[in-house]
Design a protein around this nucleic acid. Structure first.
Length: 525
RNA sequence: GCCUCCGUAGCUCAGUUGGCAGAGCAACUGACUCUUAAUCAGUGGGUCGUAGGUUCAAGUCCUACCGGGGGUACCA
């Protein structure tokens, strides 16, 4: 809102004219008094305090602090020393003032750092009249360092009796209210730093996200997987059916795409002899926003030579359970009012069996008109133009999928749904893949990868023809990838795992925006 | 994109059938040397998202737009 506008300041000093930009910069308004010191504007008051500190020879923006203890460590020390009944320990801490309680000749401050809070107790006689008066002008939100002696107050709170302090950063804007915090979701997403400052839950969620990703890496590293990085800017956006973001590379004079999947590069690495590879990184898809979709999202993609779809199921099942045990210490999680148990083994069920379970054992023997009628009875808007496959899949997506709360591997999907996957040897109408559903959401797909370059080429061709002229991912065939395939790719299992959605499940978050630090928002006006 | 709900002080929220825009916290002035949502006395702070319209009169009713939540569509 207040753009840093040094040019505006220059204008002010050079011409003595206060332009619109100058007013924004200084926080002045038209109702300001003749000295340009508005009585009401908090930001202007604080700019004035900042100036007064400077004029008193006090730098309102300090620098490096040595010998710091975290507030948590300072507390521990105090508790330990109290138990040992020895001399009171000395400590230096630094952090942000979150609350201020002025008692006249003494003052309590709540100081917050990365690991917690600590109460500071400052007495006028201990720091001297001048410093004490200056401390009284400090605001909630200011960052300072303080040193002194740890002690326990009469009401039992571990505190620091301050002997000396120094301002490290003067805050110019008031923090959200101490009791309710920041609840406006829009502001929590746009100004995440305020959310992290005011809402402890936000910090917990993101710390857990970090722990989950660390645990995934550790699990895979221990099993001999190599973590690699493949291009995020690609001349062709392949590996998935999604609309890409398009950009332009000036040096090469050609269009580039943000990747929609790392798949085709990871498979090149299989050709190159890396037998177990994975990548955890962002994919970008030019799609709408929703509670479950962010246009850039984090994905684990993994390939293992000489494995297959079943190998991938065992791997992902064991991996997610291990991560849950590591991060939560349990395999049971709560999402909303639902209890989800991630302890293996997970249910494995054929797509067609799920459909028969819901629609009757004779579903696939019914005439198309009867199927459409049954679908309409379930309040699905299908009309005569729909193929039987499409009707069946609509039932799967709208009726069956939302009921798959406990972890479920859905296998043997119709081949038309997953055109690039390897077909099952005993039935070419279905493919050898799984889709893992948890809490009614697709969390992870897994495949027996196609490694026949001739078959792959013809599938790409079909996909291209089906895509038509839409600005979809595939506008030409990735010849370089097919060349790699023609050198020979080992048979392999592959899987993708949506990290954001996994984090949602393991933190109980209802919206993907609550597990992404800076979710995509429309630019504010 | 479509449907629907929401937008009032820095933050959290009231605001009646259309009739002078409010409270708590934060801020400012003062009191108080163990408080912790400190307390007590006083003070200031508003383009009611934006722009139109109806009306003697609009935070309130109508229209459009901007931003957000939820749903839906696109979506291996």
């Amino acid at each position: 809102m207040y753009s840093i506008c040094p040019r505006g300041m220059v204008h002010q000093s050079r011409r003595g004219v206060v332009s619109m930009a100058d007013k924004e910069w200084t926080g002045m308004t038209d109702s300001d008094g003749p000295q340009g010191v508005p009585a009401a504007d908090i930001r202007s008051q604080r700019l004035e305090k900042r100036e007064q500190l400077r004029q008193a020879g006090q730098c309102p923006y300090g620098f490096r602090v040595d010998g710091l203890l975290s507030t948590a460590r300072a507390r521990e020390m105090c508790a330990a020393e109290a138990a040992a009944d020895s001399a009171a320990p000395q400590a230096r801490v630094a952090g942000r003032i979150m609350a201020k309680r002025d008692m006249g000749k003494s003052l309590f401050l709540d100081l917050r750092d990365a690991e917690g809070r600590l109460q500071l107790y400052v007495q006028r006689q201990a720091v001297g009249d001048e410093d004490f008066a200056r401390l009284k002008t400090f605001d909630i939100g200011d960052i300072l360092t303080a040193a002194g002696t740890m002690f326990v107050t009469r009401t039992g709170e571990i505190s620091l009796r301050v002997a000396e302090f120094r301002l490290l950063s003067k805050s110019l804007r008031p923090l959200p209210e101490k009791w309710h915090g920041l609840t406006d979701v829009e502001q929590r997403y746009r100004q995440r730093y305020l959310d992290l400052l005011c809402n402890e839950d936000a910090g917990r969620v993101f710390r857990r996200r970090i722990a989950i990703i660390r645990a995934l890496r550790q699990y895979l590293d221990e099993r001999g997987f190599l973590e690699v990085e493949t291009p995020m800017m690609q001349p062709l956006a392949g590996g998935a059916a999604a609309r890409p973001f398009k950009t332009y590379y000036h040096a090469l004079g050609c269009p580039m795409y943000l990747r929609i999947a790392p798949e085709l590069y990871l498979k090149r690495l299989l050709v190159g002899g890396m037998e177990k590879v994975y990548e955890i990184n962002r994919n970008f898809r030019n799609e709408g926003l929703s509670r479950r979709h962010n246009p850039e999202f984090t994905m684990l993609e993994l390939y293992q030579a000489y494995s297959d779809c079943r190998g991938m199921m065992s791997l992902v099942e064991d991996m997610i359970a291990a991560v849950a045990r590591d991060v939560l210490g349990a395999t049971a999680v709560r999402v909303g009012d639902r209890e989800i148990d991630l302890a293996p083994p997970w249910r494995r069920v054929h797509y067609a069996d799920l459909v028969r379970e819901t629609m009757g054992a004779d579903w696939y023997d019914l005439a198309p008109e009867v199927q459409r009628l049954r679908a309409c009875e379930k309040d699905l808007g299908v009309d005569a133009g729909w193929t039987p496959e499409a009707v069946t899949h609509e039932i799967y997506e709208k009726i069956i999928e939302p009921t798959l709360i406990q972890p479920t591997f859905v296998t043997r999907l119709p081949a038309w749904l997953v055109p690039l996957a390897r077909r099952c040897d005993d039935d070419p109408s279905v493919v050898d893949v799984y889709e893992l559903e948890i809490n009614g959401q697709e969390i992870s797909p897994g495949y027996s990868e196609l490694n026949d370059p001739v078959e792959q080429r013809s599938r790409f061709g079909e996909q291209l023809a089906a895509a038509g002229n839409d600005d979809v991912a595939v506008d030409r065939i990735d010849e370089d990838f097919l060349t790699a395939m023609e050198y020979g790719m080992p048979p392999a299992g592959g899987l993708g795992l949506g990290i954001d959605r996994l984090v949602m499940i393991l933190t109980g978050a209802e919206s993907i925006r609550d597990v992404i630090l800076f979710p995509q928002m429309r630019p504010a006006t």
